[in-house]
Nucleic acid binder design. Sequence first.
DNA 1: TATTTTTTTTAGACATATCTAAATTCTTTT
DNA 2: AAAAGAATTTAGATATGTCTAAAAAAAATA
Lengths: 218, 218
Amino acid sequence: MLTLAEENHLKAILSISLINPKKITTNAIAKEISISPASVSDMLKKLLEKKLIKYEKYQGVLLSKKGLTLATNILRKHRLWECFLVNKLKFDWAEVHDIAEQLEHIRSVKLIDKLDSYLNFPKYDPHGEPIPSKNGEFPKNKYTPLNKLCAGEKGKVMGVTIDEKSFLDYLTKLNINIGTNLHVLDIIIFDNSINVLIDDERTHISNDVAKHLLINKL
Amino acid sequence: MLTLAEENHLKAILSISLINPKKITTNAIAKEISISPASVSDMLKKLLEKKLIKYEKYQGVLLSKKGLTLATNILRKHRLWECFLVNKLKFDWAEVHDIAEQLEHIRSVKLIDKLDSYLNFPKYDPHGEPIPSKNGEFPKNKYTPLNKLCAGEKGKVMGVTIDEKSFLDYLTKLNINIGTNLHVLDIIIFDNSINVLIDDERTHISNDVAKHLLINKL
DNA sequence: TATTTTTTTTAGACATATCTAAATTCTTTT
DNA sequence: AAAAGAATTTAGATATGTCTAAAAAAAATA
């Protein structure tokens, strides 16, 4: 069984490698969880002993298969709890992270299974991040959230990652449906909102909306 | 801010004093949280320094006002989470304790406020225990859960502590309503179920049902 | 390539929370 | 009231997880 500190280190390694899938440095982990590199170094020894990482002194670190499984499960729990906080308790998506950071360490397989089912097996968390399945698979990012497209790119709407009436109503109003073709004209850096062309009509879409639209890029 | 160990000690002291409101012994606390009396002794020093308890060496311990507030809040969180687990996630009431024991330590006032509201401000947990209010007051036990009555006692149904359709439907079937007069004939020790007289008719009520019926004893 | 800078690790310290064994204090019994 | 027994505390040890400062290794630069 993992201690809290071990879990936090594993999750940090996973988080970093999701952005940049190279060997992870001690410094990067230290920064991620706000502790000293020396402490990370200590912990890496411990995680190596437990065979949760692949690690050679001075050479950076990778998760082992076992470590990856465990870390992915923590991420899964984090994201499911975020869904609960936002979708059920009506938290603002910006305020849930710290609470989910605590909840992710609750130990009970049954709890997470039931929570998953209670939330209707969501595939994305309130920030649009994919939720790994029980066996550690990330939903295939076959489709790209609209907010990840660049200016000039075109694509077709293939789905949404939220199923609230108000959201879907709004999409209808914007003339967006499954199958709608989009052309990203430009992205406003200030608020990450987007100007798109829908059926030759120029429309402005907020980042909040864009991140929940799954696009099949052309 | 309290550490996990401090929270557990405070909660143990509160739990014991709810059953027997005398000075609490070191041994009793040790037994409650399954650690050695020596460790408890150490912790008591620490809690005294933080003014969370009233304590003199060898003389037992009481919660201070501050300690009582904090301990009550932990109990409140524990019982609210139990409601969530049973009422929303459909856990069996017997399996929620260990999970709630973890959840009770999650730190976020807003989370508990929202959870309380999401659960419709329950007054009793799934075991029929009262849930302290935000400001630490226990719901006045003006009424007694039916499962706490003894053989021979009589009373009137004043309310229920659960509002599920299936439960209420069942009560109707049993001819039980607000205002119904009951007479407890005997209690079956094996499963804590009860034989009662309702309108001169003999009825058998399970413990699960009885604990959710609030009785005004005659 | 030699030197400097940065990164990483080691060494040694400290706080928390636990333990066992021994000493102390309180309680009960005779 | 003294002795025996029980409860409590103290003393000293251990594990975890953190730190800072110093040493070692790797990377960058001159």
